[in-house]
């Protein structure tokens, strides 16, 4: 999807519009699930397997449950799990990245080695193993996603801080008599923080997708929780019976939500970079 073609404004207005749009979308998901979500639990056997209509925009399932309500609730669960996991993951990444770049060669070697191992292990296998070891459920999914998503951001932060440390303006700052603490506070932090924020935003979609994937595969949340992954897994059985809306509607909303985060991340990055912030 090309945002530039859709919104022919300049960057700052467009960025602000996009950010507001994304926030509105998330607000809709949360309030919608709060107002409407419980209806997804109600079975109505007279209204089974209805295709999408005005009254039931996402149709109903084989027990007559409203799919819109179930999708909203599922999205809210997925968002909550994704946000928590991505936040934890980014925290780990920040800590490890800073340690690797500042605490000397031995620490750097160990952390780089850890990053390499985590990156070399197939993602899904790692997720399944950790989630399974933690006993599944929401806790298991959060721990698994948090424990497997830090390596790439760790690398970015480590490289960023290392490059900064050898940059001319930081060396010059030392010659101007500035203390390490001043340099860390005034030179390093303003540079690393935006990178971290953007990294965090771009972690969300991954975390949400992987949380859904874990549940879909049956290693995550219990089938009774209407998480998006669980909804999709259930719908697989009914696809061959022609109930396409069971998979399409939740899947599409998941894709839209994830893409919204992705666009949000890219736009925030443009806004925080002095080179592009005035365009």
């Amino acid at each position: 999807m090309n945002v530039h073609a859709l919104l022919p404004m300049d960057r700052r207005s467009r960025t602000i519009a996009v950010i507001l749009g994304c926030l509105a979308l998330f607000a809709c998901v949360f309030t919608g699930a709060w107002l409407y979500g419980d209806r997804g639990e109600v079975t109505a056997l007279t209204l089974r397997k209805l295709p999408p209509s005005l009254q039931y925009p996402f149709g109903t399932d084989w027990l007559g449950r409203d799919m819109l309500a179930r999708t909203l609730k599922g999205l809210r669960i997925s968002l909550r799990v994704g946000l928590t996991a991505a936040g934890c993951s980014a925290g780990i990444a920040l800590l490890l990245g800073l340690c690797a770049a500042t605490l000397g060669r031995a620490v750097d070697a160990v952390i780089t080695w850890l990053v390499d191992i985590a990156m070399a292990t197939p993602h899904l296998v790692l997720l399944i193993l950790i989630s399974f070891a933690c006993g599944g459920g929401e806790k298991g999914v959060i721990i698994a996603v948090a424990a497997s998503h830090w390596p790439s951001l760790t690398r970015v932060i480590r490289a960023e801080v290392l490059a900064l440390r050898s940059s001319e303006y930081i060396q010059l700052s030392r010659q101007l008599g500035k203390r390490p603490l001043y340099i860390a506070r005034h030179h390093m932090l303003p540079h690393v923080l935006p990178q971290f924020m953007v990294g965090l935003l771009l972690l969300f979609p991954h975390a949400i997708l992987h949380a859904a994937a874990l549940t879909f595969l049956g290693f995550g949340m219990s089938p009774h929780t209407p998480a998006i992954g669980a909804l999709l897994a259930e719908s697989m059985r009914y696809l061959s019976m022609g109930l396409w809306w069971l998979a399409v509607a939740p899947g599409l909303t998941l894709v839209i939500t994830v893409k919204a985060f992705d666009i949000l991340g890219g736009n925030v990055r443009a806004l925080l970079d002095p080179k592009t912030c005035r365009e």
Binding site: D10, R12, R278, E279
Partner: peptide, 11 residues
Amino acid sequence: FSSYSFGLKKH
């Protein structure tokens, strides 16, 4: 080049 000075003010 159009650029922003502050907020949405442009020049």
